[in-house]
Amino acid sequence: MRLPTWIRQHMAALRALLVFTVLLGVIYPLSVFAVAQIPGLKDKAGGSIITVNGKAVGSASIGQSFTDKDGNPLKQYFQSRPSNAGDGYDPTATAASNLGPEDIVDSLPDPALVAAGKEDENAKQSLLTQVCQRSKAAGELDGVDGSRPFCTSGGVGAVLAVFGDRTADGKVPHPTRVVSLNEQEGVVKAPFITTYNGVKVELAKFGEEYARGLVVPIKGNAPTTPAVPADAVTASGSGLDPHISPEYAAIQVKRVAQARGITPTQVEKLIKVEQTGRALGFMGEPAVNVLKLNLALDKQFPARR
């Protein structure tokens, strides 16, 4: 007896469901799990967890902070690359800032909220100001020149709004007003430059609109190649990068050595041990795993109490 078409269609769909359930819901996951148990892969599949005296201290694949309870960098440890993943290095909120190189103007905070000790949720730092602040902080921490092109000495983006009639190519040869967009009145005493093309530079005021002005970044006199490397001031795409460049490690050597009462040469030797080369000899750049390096320091040269 031939079954009705609608019954045969439902039975075919049921068979397909059962086949794919077994294939994709049982066989495939078990196969992946089995492959993950192969020596050399098992550790990575388990999260690359590093333990000390039986206690998990972190993952070799995920960055972490080395700061005190107030968020201040611990001088005896190498510092990691910045992170925009959640509150920092959060695997459940992996993300980048999604800000590009043209993001150079801050949204200034309401001074009334700041005076009341509150946070202005509408305020936002531009990518440029974030880079400038991180570079300044890293320079102060490690005793190197933290200045960068297009940054003020106060650690914000050196950006002007220039008002006046524009030429056909969009320039303002004879400005009538100039405002330092990222320096707020009441926060800083004076703008990073006094005049621009003969016009006195003003500090930005909260609530004023400067969109009609021509946005002009000012390069300044900072070295073209800053002492603080790029990975010290920018977060990775995932926000979870556990590595820093050898260049970033190098500027931290003196501080770490002093905090631990050892010589810079002793610290540099550990950096070379923990440094990895390019993948397959040609992909990527040499890098240093921060957690592994700090653990090696704790093992060989415990910090002074």
Rank of each mutant, 00 (worst) to 15 (best):
A13R: 12
R255L: 00
T225D: 09
M1H: 09
V215R: 04
V199S: 11
G146A: 08
P223V: 01
Q252N: 04
K272D: 11
A85W: 02
G261M: 02
E285I: 08
G25D: 07
V201S: 00
W6Q: 15
R212L: 00
G261N: 05
D145W: 01
I62W: 12
F78V: 08
Q125R: 06
G58D: 10
G164S: 11
M1W: 10
N182D: 06
A168D: 15
L127D: 06
G63T: 01
A204L: 02
K219Y: 00
S107D: 00
D90C: 12
P149V: 06
A12T: 15
E121D: 13
S245H: 01
A227G: 04
I49H: 10
G146D: 05
V26S: 14
R166E: 03
P82K: 08
I27T: 14
K55T: 14
F282Y: 10
A204I: 02
S65A: 10
Q79G: 10
L297Y: 13
Q64V: 03
R255T: 13
P191C: 06
G88N: 00
S61Y: 14
T195C: 01
R81T: 09
P191M: 04
L23V: 14
S97K: 06
I7R: 15
L24E: 14
F33L: 15
I7V: 15
T92R: 14
V105T: 02
P91L: 11
G281Y: 07
E185W: 01
N53S: 13
F20A: 09
L141V: 02
D120P: 05
D145S: 10
A250P: 05
R212E: 09
L99Y: 12
T276I: 09
S153T: 15
P39K: 09
P109M: 05
A303I: 02
L127R: 14
L127P: 07
Q76I: 08
Q125L: 12
A190C: 08
F66W: 11
A93H: 13
A137R: 02
V179Y: 02
E268F: 03
S153D: 15
N221I: 01
D231S: 04
V267N: 05
N221E: 04
P226N: 06
V178G: 06
G71P: 12
L24I: 14
L108M: 09
T224D: 15
K189H: 08
V35I: 15
P191D: 05
V199W: 05
T152C: 08
P149Q: 14
T263H: 01
G157V: 00
S147Y: 04
L293Y: 10
G239V: 08
N84K: 03
T195E: 14
S126I: 01
H243K: 05
R260N: 10
Q79E: 05
L160G: 09
S238D: 11
N289Y: 03
L74M: 13
R304T: 11
T195I: 00
E285M: 10
G277D: 11
